[in-house]
Measured scan of single mutants.
Amino acid sequence: DAPDEFRDPLMDTLMTDPVRLPSGTIMDRSIILRHLLNSPTDPFNRQTLTESMLEPVPELKEQIQAWMR
């Protein structure tokens, strides 16, 4: 099983494109984008959230890719 820090906190699946929300939570980009289609909010604190506020986490993405090899 993947380490917890590699798993999306909402869907508990392996992240492939991790992004940091303004709240500091790291999620998979595809999952948070799907959530934003229904509700333009951070799913953990209900603060306003837009796609432009998502910050890529390239170092975590590299760690996940290395773990998958």
Rank of each mutant, 00 (worst) to 15 (best):
L49F: 03
E55N: 08
P58H: 11
Q47L: 10
M53E: 11
S30I: 11
T41A: 07
I64R: 00
P9L: 06
L10P: 02
P22F: 01
A66V: 09
E55H: 09
P22Q: 03
P9D: 05
R29T: 03
Q47W: 09
R7Q: 05
L37F: 10
K61W: 10
A66S: 12
F44Q: 04
P40V: 07
P56W: 08
P3T: 04
T13P: 01
D4I: 15
L33R: 08
E51Y: 09
P3D: 03
P40C: 09
S23M: 05
P43E: 02
T13V: 12
R69V: 13
L33I: 11
R69Q: 15
R34E: 11
W67L: 07
R20E: 03
S30A: 14
P3V: 04
I31Q: 06
Q63M: 14
P3G: 04
E55Y: 08
P40L: 12
D4H: 14
L33S: 08
N45S: 14
T25I: 15
E51F: 08
M15T: 02
T16N: 10
P9H: 06
G24F: 04
D8V: 02
G24D: 02
T25F: 15
L54K: 00
I26M: 03
D4Y: 14
A66W: 09
S52T: 11
E59A: 12
S30T: 13
N45P: 01
M68E: 12
L60N: 00
S52A: 14
K61V: 07
P43A: 02
P22G: 01
P3L: 05
R34N: 12
T41H: 09
Q65M: 15
N38D: 12
M11A: 13
M27F: 06
M53K: 05
M27I: 07
R7V: 07
A66T: 10
L49V: 07
W67K: 07
Q63L: 14
L10Y: 10
R7E: 02
M11S: 14
E5R: 14
M27S: 02
P18Q: 03
D17V: 04
V19K: 01
Q65I: 13
D12F: 15
Q63E: 11
L60I: 06
I32V: 09
P3K: 07
L33V: 12
T13E: 08
F44G: 03
Q63R: 15
A2L: 13
P18R: 02
P22S: 02
G24P: 01
V19L: 03
T50R: 09
L10T: 09
Q65G: 09
M11V: 09
T25E: 08
T50Y: 12
R20P: 00
P40Q: 14
L21G: 01
N38A: 12
P40K: 13
P40D: 10
G24W: 04
L37A: 14
D4A: 15
E59R: 09
L60H: 00
L37D: 10
L21C: 04
E5F: 12
L33N: 06
P9K: 07
E62G: 09
I32H: 01
M27W: 04
P58C: 08
D28W: 05
D8Q: 02
I26V: 11
D12E: 09
D4R: 15
L36H: 02
L36W: 00
M68T: 08
S52L: 11
S23C: 06
L37K: 14
L33M: 14
D8L: 04
F6A: 02
E5Q: 13
T41W: 15
E5C: 15
M27H: 04
M11F: 11
W67R: 07
D4Q: 15
T13N: 07
V19T: 04
L36T: 00
L14D: 02
P58Y: 09
D28C: 07
R7K: 13
I26A: 01
P56F: 08
Q63T: 09
L36P: 00
R46E: 14
M15S: 01
D1E: 14
V19N: 00
M53Q: 10
P9N: 05
R34M: 13
I32S: 00
R7Y: 13
T13M: 08
D17Y: 05
Q47G: 10
P58W: 09
Q65V: 12
L49A: 00
R69G: 13
T16G: 07
T16Y: 12
L49N: 01
T41P: 02
D12I: 06
P22C: 05
P56G: 10
P43C: 05
D17Q: 05
I26E: 01
I64T: 00
R7S: 04
R20M: 09
R69I: 13
D12H: 15
A66D: 15
D28H: 03
P9C: 07
I31P: 00
E5H: 15
T16H: 11
E62K: 14
D4G: 13
P43R: 02
S52I: 09
N45M: 06
S23E: 03
L14V: 13
R7F: 13
P18W: 05
A2Q: 06
M68G: 07
M68F: 11
F6Y: 12
T48L: 15
T16V: 13
T16A: 10
F6M: 07
R29W: 08
D8S: 02
P18M: 02
D42A: 00
L21H: 00
M15I: 08
E55K: 11
R20V: 06
S39G: 07
D17L: 04
T50I: 10
M27V: 09
A66L: 12
D8H: 04
P18C: 05
P43G: 02
D42N: 06
S23D: 07
I64P: 00
G24R: 04
S30Y: 11
R34H: 11
W67D: 08
F44L: 06
P40H: 11
L36D: 00
R7M: 11
V19Y: 05
Q63A: 15
N38K: 14
A2Y: 14
E62W: 10
L49C: 06
I32R: 01
W67F: 10
I31R: 02
M11W: 11
L36C: 05
M11G: 09
